[in-house]
Design a protein around this nucleic acid. Sequence first.
DNA 1: CTGAAAGCGCTTACAG
DNA 2: CTGAAAGCGCTTACAG
Lengths: 321, 321
Amino acid sequence: VLNKQETPVVISEATRKKVLEAARTLGYVPSAAARALRKGACRTIGILGNAPEIFLDSLRTVGLDTEMMRALMMEALHAQVHVLLLTGVVEDDHSYNNQLAEIGMVDGLVVYNRDLSAGGWFLDAIQNSGRPLVYLMEYPQEPAVCYFAPDDVQGGRLAAEMLLAAGHKRIGFLTENIYPGIFGRRRAGWAEALRQAGIMPADAWVLTQQTQLDARIVQSERLTALVCANQWLAFNFRAKTAKASGLAVPDDISLVAVTCESPNSRHSADLARAYSPLTDIVAAGTKALIELVSGKELAEQRHLFPFIEQPGVSVKALVES
Amino acid sequence: VLNKQETPVVISEATRKKVLEAARTLGYVPSAAARALRKGACRTIGILGNAPEIFLDSLRTVGLDTEMMRALMMEALHAQVHVLLLTGVVEDDHSYNNQLAEIGMVDGLVVYNRDLSAGGWFLDAIQNSGRPLVYLMEYPQEPAVCYFAPDDVQGGRLAAEMLLAAGHKRIGFLTENIYPGIFGRRRAGWAEALRQAGIMPADAWVLTQQTQLDARIVQSERLTALVCANQWLAFNFRAKTAKASGLAVPDDISLVAVTCESPNSRHSADLARAYSPLTDIVAAGTKALIELVSGKELAEQRHLFPFIEQPGVSVKALVES
DNA sequence: CTGAAAGCGCTTACAG
DNA sequence: CTGAAAGCGCTTACAG
C-alpha cells in the first residue's frame, strides 16, 4: 500500500484505507535513511554557496539569494528531489569529517556563485567521491567541469555597446572586489567593446565603490556613463555616490547595469540593463544536475546564457558636439 | 582513524596519515544513510516555509528570505547540524508519500512564516511522527506548540504610540491580505493603542495596498499618519502610492513600520520603525530546536520577542492647532 | 586491546 | 501470488 506507485499489486480499497489509517495513527514515517541505504541514492541534491564568513562579511552579500532559491526549489519540487544546504567550511579535523559526511548525504551538488579562488579541498572531495557537480554563475577554468553561467564577457560588451549607441565615449566601469571571476569577465567585455569602438579603456576608468573617490574620477576623467558590474552597484551609485556628489542620473551620468537579477527584485526596476535571467540559468543547471544524478549524460558540459538589452531611464542620449 | 573524535584509541601519526590519504585517493565518503540508520538520527533539521504557489504568487513574497536563512545557517553550522529545505505541498497520493519521506529525512523541523490557515495535514504528520517542531514568526493557536515570534500586538501598539507621541490622532493602518496572523495581531495592537488614547480606530482607516483607493482614503479620512504592517508596505507606500497621489512623506503623511527586517536589508533604512530583529528570533528558535532534537526539554514553550522604537525621517511631529 | 557479530529499516530478488 | 531472506554500510556491544 505504502509503495503503491511502483507495484502493480491489486489491493482492495477498504484494506488500503485501513493501512493508511493505521500508518497515520501510529505516526509512521518511512525511514529515509534505510531507504537511501538500500537504494544507494537518497534523491537529494546539495546546494553549496559561499562560506559563511562571506555571508557575514557584508549584509548585502547574500550567498544564496531568494531568486535563485526559488528557481532551484521549483525544479527540485518538480523532479521530486530534496534540497540540502551545504556550507563547505573547514576549520579542523572534526569539521573535516563533518564536511565529508555532508557529501555523503547528497547524490549530487550545485555550486552557486561560490568564490573559487580559495582552496577547494571540499570541491575536490566531491569530485573524488564520484558525485555529479554543476556550477552555477561562477565556474572554474578546468575544461572538464559542467557549468551553467551567464556569458559575462558578452554582457559587459552589450552594456558598453548600449552606451556607445547612445553617443557616449567616455564610459567607465563600476565594480567591486567580490566575485572576481564574474566581474572580471564583465570588465573584459566592457574593455573589448570600447577598444572595438576605437576608445582606449583606461585603468583609471575603473571605479571600485569608494563614494568620494568614484565621484572625483567621474569628474576628473569627464566620464559621461558607467557600465556597472551588477544591478546593486548601479542602484547604490545612483542612491549614494551620485546623490552625495551632486551628480544627476542620467543627466550628468548614464548607467547601464550588467545583471542576472530580475527587474522586479530589490530595486532598480527602471535601470537600463544588459540582462540574463538568473532564473533560467538556475533552472537549467538544476535540471541538468538531476539528470546527471539519474545516470544520464549531458550533451554539452558548458552552457553560457546570453544577455539581452533592456532600455531604461538611466541612459541619456548624447548629442555629438 | 575516521571517527577519531569519539574513540580514545591511540593511533600512530604515520598510519593515521596513511589511512586518511587512502580514503582521499579512493574518494571515500562515509555513507550518511548507513550512519543515520544505525544511530537513529541524522543530525539534520528541516526548514519549512510557504508552499511554492505562494513563492510564485508574488515576486516579492519570498517564503524564505535571506536574512532568516543566514541566521538559521549560522546556528546550524555552529551545532554541526545540516539543513534540509522542505516544501510541504500535497497534490496527490504520490506526492503524499514523497512528503512523508521528507519528514523521514529530518530529526526535527522549523516552520517559518508559514500560512497556517490552509489544511495542515503535513504539520500533523510531523507531530504524529514524534519529531520536534518549532514555529518561527507565525504560529498556531493550540496551547501545546513551541514557537519563537515577535510580539506583534505590542509592535502594533508601539508603532501607534510613536505616532501618538508625535501628536498624530488620525492614524491609519496599512496592511495586505497575506500573513493573516502576523498582520492581524499588529492591527489589533494598533487599534488598542488608539482606543487607549481615546481615539476610535475606524474600519475605514485600514488600507489594503490598492494605490488609488488608499490615497483617496488618506485624504477623505484626513489621516495624518499610518502604521504599516511591515517594512515593505511602508517602502512601497512611499515609493508608489504617495508619489502617485502627490502626498509627501512625512510632510503630508507620517509612516511607522512594524518590522523584523534589519534596516540594512532591502530598502527603508531611514524609516521610523517598531523593530524586533528577525535574526534574534530565528537564532533562538533554531537553537531551541537543536536542543529538542538532542533530547533536552525547553523551560518555556512560547517565546515572544519585544519590538523596540527606532526613530526615522518618516515621522513629522504635529503641532496641535 | 582487538576482531567479529548483530542489527538499524528498508527493498529486491528469489524460493515456495 | 505470497512470504522469507539477504544485504545496503555503518556503529555498538560483546566475546576472545
